[in-house]
């Protein structure tokens, strides 16, 4: 129906999450009909990023430098390390603000059924990092799913001998939420993790 080049573009766009044949076609036509310049910019940016972006040697986050900007920043506390599952989690925490330590990005979680073991998520690297870079506290910010919890537990066990302080982020009722709308599992977590209040 389309010319080969257009066909190839539509096919290529379908690799994006949530993009089916129809949306891919719409995107391709938009780029070619109305926004040639945007198409050039996109092509250049894509090529550049796919070519140059790799992993930070320290924290495994995505970066085109050998060591990412957060790890290079001297104002960030090197003694506090936050372990997260994905680069998107780093962005979420950074946008929330308030955290001044560094990160370690696992790029996944332990998931035996998917065949993902400790070395697939760089846990040996993490252990070396903790031992060699004077990390004093590790904040386990993996997701509150069974696999995220299992990863946190495995890490707790792995780093126990290294004498670092380990903490797990709290799970509970979201701000502005209503108890009635919170599921039972979360409520149970919120109760077992309750904090003393004082005047």
């Amino acid at each position: 129906m389309f010319s080969p080049a257009l066909e190839a573009l539509v096919d290529a766009l379908r690799c994006l999450p949530g993009v089916g044949p129809k949306s891919a076609q719409r995107m391709a036509l938009h780029l070619l009909e109305r926004d040639r310049e945007g198409a050039q910019v996109l092509a250049l940016a894509l090529g550049e990023a796919a070519e140059r972006v790799g992993r930070c040697q320290r924290c495994r986050n995505l970066t085109e430098a050998p060591v990412c900007a957060i790890c290079e920043d001297p104002r960030r506390e090197a003694a506090v390390l936050c372990v997260v599952e994905t680069p998107a989690d780093v962005l979420a925490i950074e946008q929330a603000g308030g955290y001044r330590g560094r990160y370690f990005v696992l790029m996944g979680h332990l998931s035996p059924i998917d065949g993902i073991g400790p070395e697939d998520i760089g846990l040996d690297r993490l252990q070396t990092l903790v031992q060699e870079q004077g990390v004093e506290e590790v904040i386990l910010a993996t997701n509150p799913t069974a696999e995220g919890e299992a990863t946190a537990w495995y890490l707790t066990d792995l780093l126990a001998a290294d004498g670092v302080r380990m903490s797990r982020i709290a799970h509970g009722v979201p701000l502005g939420g209503e108890l009635e709308y919170v599921d039972g599992n979360t409520l149970m977590h919120a109760f077992s993790g309750r904090l003393p209040v004082s005047r």
């Binding site: 059924i113 069974a146 696999e147 299992a150 537990w153 039972g184 599992n185 149970m188």
Partner: peptide, 25 residues
Amino acid sequence: ESGGGLAPLRGDALLSGLYVNELLV
């Protein structure tokens, strides 16, 4: 819907749970 509360698995019990699930799958 929830079919009744069960305390969340922790620690070794959690790893064992993953083992049991992998066996079933």
